[in-house]
Design a protein around this nucleic acid. Sequence first.
RNA 1: GCCGGGAUGGCGGAAUUGGCAGACGCGCUGGACUUAGGAUCCAGUGCCGUAAAAGGCGUGCAGGUUCAAGUCCUGUUCCCGGCACCA
Length: 851
Amino acid sequence: MPQEERTIVKSASAAEEPNREDRGRDERYNPHQIEEKWFKRWQQDSSLYAAEPHSSKPKYYVLEMLPYPSGALHMGHVRNYAIGDALARYMWMNGYNVLHPMGWDSFGLPAENAAISAKVPPREWTLRNIANMKAQMKRLGFGYDWSREITTCLPDYYKWNQWFFLKLYRRGLAYRKKSKVNWCPKCATVLANEQVVGGCCWRHEDTPVEQRELEQWFLRITNYADELLRDLDRLPGWPEKVRIMQRNWIGRSEGTLVDFRLDGPSGEKISVFTTRVDTILGATSVQLAPQHTITEKLAAADPELRKKVDQLIAEQAKAKETGDIGNIEKHGVNTGHFAINPYNGEKVPVWVANYILMDYGTGAIMSVPAHDERDFEFAKKYGIEIRQVIEPSVARAPSPAKEVSDKSVRPTQSGEMPFTTLAFAEQKGFGKATVTFRLKDWGISRQRYWGTPIPMVYCDEDGVVPVAEKDLPVILPENVEITLTGGSPLVQVPEFLNTTCPKCGGLARRETDTMDTFVDSSWYFYRYTDAHNERAPFDSKIAGYWFGEKGIDQYIGGVEHAILHLIYSRFWTKFMRDLGLIKNSEPVERLFTQGMVIKGGAKMSKSLGNVVAPDEMIARFGADAARMYSLFAAPPDRDLDWQESGIEGIQRFLSRLYRFVAKNAHPNDAAWNKSIPTELSPEARAIQRKLHQTIKRVTDDFQGRWHFNTCIAATMELVNELYSSEIVGERASSPAIPLSLLADVQRNLVLLLAPFAPFLAHELWEMLGGKSSLLKAPWPKYDPELAKEEEIEIPVQVNGKLRGKIVIAPGVGEEEIKQRALADEKFQSYIAGKQIVKVIFTGKLVSIVVR
RNA sequence: GCCGGGAUGGCGGAAUUGGCAGACGCGCUGGACUUAGGAUCCAGUGCCGUAAAAGGCGUGCAGGUUCAAGUCCUGUUCCCGGCACCA
């Protein structure tokens, strides 16, 4: 690592103190030297972070989301992995058998883009990036079990994607359908609806998505829609925020499908979905999405209408583009045709409107202006009749009752009608109760090279035929030219394309589409448990051990994956359960979503020029400081504003700690390992008390709230106390404290910091004479007796205002405390001559109320 | 527009159950050490006020409940994230 050596030299010279004898070189904290030393040692022992296959210890599976190997880690990764690593180390120290793996989500478009721009084959580019990022992770000291590393773009992994696909196909959960798909002209590929951001490609945010019709493979995630929804209630370890987002994404809605008919010789059906079939007599128009098939037909015969519809489509696209579809200025056009209300035979006008979305429900609605605000707004704008048919009318709309026309049906109470109207519809056969979901089937076909080949074959004789399991994997060919033109590059590879039919042995074509990379990440965490299995994706027993009944103990990642990745993973888990591979129904018991790393209030981005590179931070401050700062600057669930001066502060703290231990470690002294005397001087006792209070605070904040920032702050306080103490700090000429206590304080302090700054902690542990490995040294315990204060300050309020404090010994009774407060001279000016209404003591504070 | 989260000193943040607002870090000010300090150590640092005190004000804004509110309630503004006019 020549680059790092250079920085070591640089930083050493920057802090150089030529020929100063008063401070030995040993006392200066040199993170690069320390980190290099431990880096080398840890390199030599691959079993260090390995999970035990058979263990009497309780298991703990801690997982961070695997990265896409884009080339280098960014600060968001560092933060994510610093959180996970701190937790893994904490659990190791608490005696758990910890599984803490890492891998690479290594299929995907950027590799193809790199192939085009840099002329590097995707595989080579990807593997090079992986090597670089893996080195960065090791340099940062993250404790992963690399023997379980998975790389999704390699055949030993993607073979099982194909295997799963065949299972899905056999169960009818994978199917082909022709459908309009989102087409990104830049990627020259199809995007899932979920991958469209504001009408634009999620990767090319300024490229509007076009619509094309293609034959696609879909996975029937909707078969699991109800279960995916229901089980959200069984995930108390997930942030409420994420559960709500998923609930909204699934979007279950109970209502009625009603068939209107187009008035005219064709009498075509117009199905509408409504949750308020009880208002159907108030329907005064039917509204179609601009892309509706009936819209298309009517427009085909009417050039004027065609023009207007095209404009509506353009408006809708524009609104989607700006992400403002929810706020679209409503426009519509009257087709001049009518639809027949099946309930009363009434003819109502058929409109086409820009706010009706083709991809929700049936793409058509009945418009009931008196009982729906949006319909009301539209009707007012275009002068469509508003007819109230039930009580009450639309909430908050300005009294539409006034505009009820002569044709009003007598209003009934809301809720009276749905049952009878629905029953009537079902009896007459023009409507039925329906549950719709917003969730759509998962389109996984990609017209890309760098992905898992879909293991299907097209034969002129036998049609669509699955590849035989024994012939897996279908290997992705190498040396493929990537072009930007549409269609999959695999079409251009005859050796791949041309094959034989598994059924008849005749000539056949392979499927040239590859799979969405969300397939890879939907089940990767099971593979970690048994990463080298060649006969199955994983062994059920082994996965069963690590997943238990509830899944991964703790999953940590960015909130941006709250919906897609996490809902696909949940679906895949349920599917694998139904296959009999696993017992758990959910993949993740506890989920943690960390905040973003920002700089100057803005997301880090190349265009803003505010990107902070981890390598640079490591070079300047060391890995420990970089990791620790990312935990200190904010609680982990909040956004973190990266401040250079902040990480300098952390480095200062680590230096302070290092110097203290360098000066106060005396492991060869006979008194060092003796037991701590029970009788201590008040000064020594104060240090001991602070230590035990610190252990309590760090443990509580780590365990309960994950507020690593306050954990670290607590250890800072302890170090400050040590420095300012009269008996050990700089002020003390020689330590006037029992060496055994001095040893105890330092050892515990180092243990408390081990999850956050592993390099320095190991170095100091060694300096303190630690023999066993720090990694699995037991987490410190505090003694509540030793943590107890000897005197307690009780604040005293008079009429709600703080007026001073009294000092009491622990154990003094409530009455005495009240009396002491009332009698105290300090408060006489506030209470003398006034009537004391009451005195409150709550255990923390005395409150005197006077009149 | 809907859903979710947030707003606390000059800055990042702390305050875990309604009980001392501002822990810890940064920055700033002063001092010590020093040829030097951008190293290190010590002290101070919410705002107004004062020679110093006393005193007053203070958690986006306006109200409310309470002996007591950053924390609970009602209303409201702004910022961030997500989204779906979802019928």
